[in-house]
Design a protein around this nucleic acid. Structure first.
Length: 270
DNA sequence: CTTCGTTCCTGGAAGC
DNA sequence: TGCTTCCAGGAACGAA
């Protein structure tokens, strides 16, 4: 599942293929992926636009055009990749034909992905409401502690809220809590200021490591060139339920938190 | 207001 | 072996 580090890697790998290119044609094969505007307008308005830059905010990809912006969310199994030949990748749902014989494909197995083209006052609510990014000054103890004290959610559910912190998903949330030694079911309001400081450091650490390792390919994630990440080889808890903790050897527990599969060490995480 | 459950979707694994 | 059921989960949405 693409989270912040995966989307960042897509951005980096895609940029050299698409920046400066003009969108010659758009072929939408699954209409419901297009959230705004109507599909025919989406296609019509994108034709002839130049892609100036590609950026990331939370888990959103923002392709800044000479007019308007193409916004892409990969959700669970979406991928945006560029090819120089005509070979079509599996599960291709949208084909963007660019100048210089570049094709940018949006592929998606489960078709949860969402795309928008905005050149007016339309607001993508999820994007507009995003909290601060990990690895920035915005994610500070001064910002987060007042929110934590007011929340009765499980701490894991709390840090998964994109309005609180942008970019964490199920993998990095579990990894951050393991790194911080905090049990996922602890209520957010019961986390002390000192523990929260440790958690913020842990979030920054696991996100930075994910970026360094080009993302986590646990199942379907691939970058802008169709390549897998390496971070799955460095995970402490995610996907390791029933296996021994790498720190203490205790068997890692697997539970559900807010409907999400959650793995933690019952000994290291309190 | 907050929090929780449901929904969307497909492929692979697990279960009988 | 072969069929059925379950599970993976980001985020919008409606209900409590």
């Amino acid at each position: 599942m693409p989270e912040l580090p995966e989307v960042e890697q897509v951005k980096k790998t895609l940029a050299p293929y698409i920046e400066g290119k003009i969108i010659k044609n758009v072929e939408v094969r699954l209409a419901h992926l297009i959230q705004y505007p109507a599909v025919d307008l989406f296609v019509k308005k994108l034709k002839g636009r130049m892609i100036q830059t590609i950026n990331r905010r939370g888990k959103y990809l923002l392709l800044q055009l000479d007019k308007g912006v193409l916004i892409v969310h990969l959700r669970m199994t979406g991928a945006l990749l560029a090819t120089r030949n005509s070979a079509e990748p599996p599960y291709a749902k949208i084909k963007f034909s660019l100048t210089d014989n570049i094709v940018m494909w949006f592929t998606d197995i489960r078709a949860f992905g969402t795309l928008y083209y905005v050149d007016d006052d339309f607001v993508v609510k999820g994007l507009a409401a995003l909290g601060p990014e990990p690895l920035t000054k915005g994610l500070s103890l001064e910002y987060l502690f007042p929110l934590v004290t007011k929340s009765k959610k499980a701490i894991k559910t709390f840090i998964l809220d994109q309005n609180v912190i942008a970019g964490l998903g199920n993998i990095y949330a579990d990894e951050a809590l393991a790194e911080a030694g905090i049990a996922p079911l602890r209520l957010a309001c019961d986390v002390t200021r000192k523990e929260l400081a440790v958690l913020i450091k842990a979030i920054n650490k696991v996100i930075a490591q994910g970026i360094k390792n080009h993302g986590t390919t646990f199942r379907d994630y691939k970058d802008g060139e169709g390549k897998k990440g390496n971070n799955q080889n460095f995970l402490a808890v995610y996907g390791r339920g029933g296996q021994p903790c790498k720190k203490c050897g205790a068997i890692l527990n697997k539970i559900k938190v807010g409907g999400r599969g959650t793995v933690y060490c019952p000994k290291c995480q309190k």
